[in-house]
Design a protein around this nucleic acid. Structure first.
Lengths: 178, 178
DNA sequence: AAAACCATGTAACTAGTTACATGATTAA
DNA sequence: TTAATCATGTAACTAGTTACATGGTTTT
């Protein structure tokens, strides 16, 4: 399970509250692993019990208590163990491909493909802006940047493939629709 | 949830036992939606209760009873409803990308990328063989073949993107390793 | 004779989603 | 003064995984 590991990766970069993590999971690390705040709080509690993270609670008058989590030595060890373990391939589950496979409603499929294309394009734009901003010269990356850069490249390649797929679908279905 | 719909798509093509479906989920429809036999039997029971499929049980002396499921009118209606509903984008969850993002062990990452590349290549070979066999002339597809062909094309494009990603990773990490 | 395949499940567990809930602080 | 943001959760539910279980039939 990688939610724990995604959290560890993020906390290694910078300690954070559950709330901070939830926001990071809306971008950066969240490009590769989705998680809701409910899940994050639940998982942080378990990780603290396991000793992978340590929470420091700050009482603030008026405002809600705030717990900032930091990665522990055991957490770092776990990340190293994870890092050395081959990752299983993610099981593929695509509503859209299932729908295409059983194609019944061409017009709906066209609308769907158009919406997906726009979504892919929007993400691609985000990723490319990130790449340009943080890694302007990929041939001269610092050691710390290589991993994040390559992860981002994966996102870019996947979005591009998604766009190419939508274009093929639209090409085929639009033509046969007329 | 698309497991029900993947089952309906498959049963619409041909009625089947749970066992048959489980095997189909190792190939064809399973290229786009993974499911274990346990999940399939459980889901078929619920779908029968919902009236989307109908099971006919055959008692065979000596051998285990066998229930063959067929899609019902209600099941077809549900498939049409599904077909007309925009599909949400699948939430992205990649162990491998998380690992890359927090890159700690370059050698392990290289090994991982090599294994993934081989896996992508193997699937790509399978998909391309399927495409060649069943849809030798994509410019002249029958109406029934358009959906399955386009779904397969999605698989092909995704695997190609996966291979390209692995190659970039290996290019970067191999170079910096030496 | 052993292995693979046919055929169907139960049980316990882990992961993820959806809905609901609370209450302060800061920016428009 | 209204909306957005900060901050944290509980509860109920749905989906998926892992381990275990049974027993006949066909192929090597």
């Amino acid at each position: 399970m990688a939610l724990e590991h995604a959290i560890l990766v993020s906390l290694r970069e910078q300690s954070a509250t559950g709330y901070d993590l939830a926001r990071r999971f809306d971008a950066s690390i969240g490009y590769f692993w989705r998680a809701s705040h409910q899940q994050i709080y639940r998982t942080l509690t378990r990780m603290a019990a396991d000793g992978w993270v340590e929470g420091a609670t700050e009482h603030r008058d008026g405002a809600t208590d705030r717990t900032t989590y930091a990665i522990t030595t055991a957490g770092r060890a776990e990340l190293e163990r994870f890092s050395a373990t081959p990752s299983p391939r993610e099981p593929l589950r695509s509503d859209f491909a299932v729908k295409l496979r059983g194609l019944l409603d061409t017009e709906a499929a066209i609308a769907d493909a158009q919406a997906r294309r726009a979504d892919h394009q929007a993400r691609l734009d985000t990723y490319e802006a990130s790449a340009k901003r943080y890694y302007p010269d990929p041939s001269a990356l610092s050691e710390d940047d290589r991993g994040p850069y390559l992860a981002l490249r994966g996102g870019i390649l996947l979005e591009q493939a998604g766009i190419a797929w939508c274009d093929e679908i639209l090409g085929q279905l639009d033509r046969s629709e007329r």
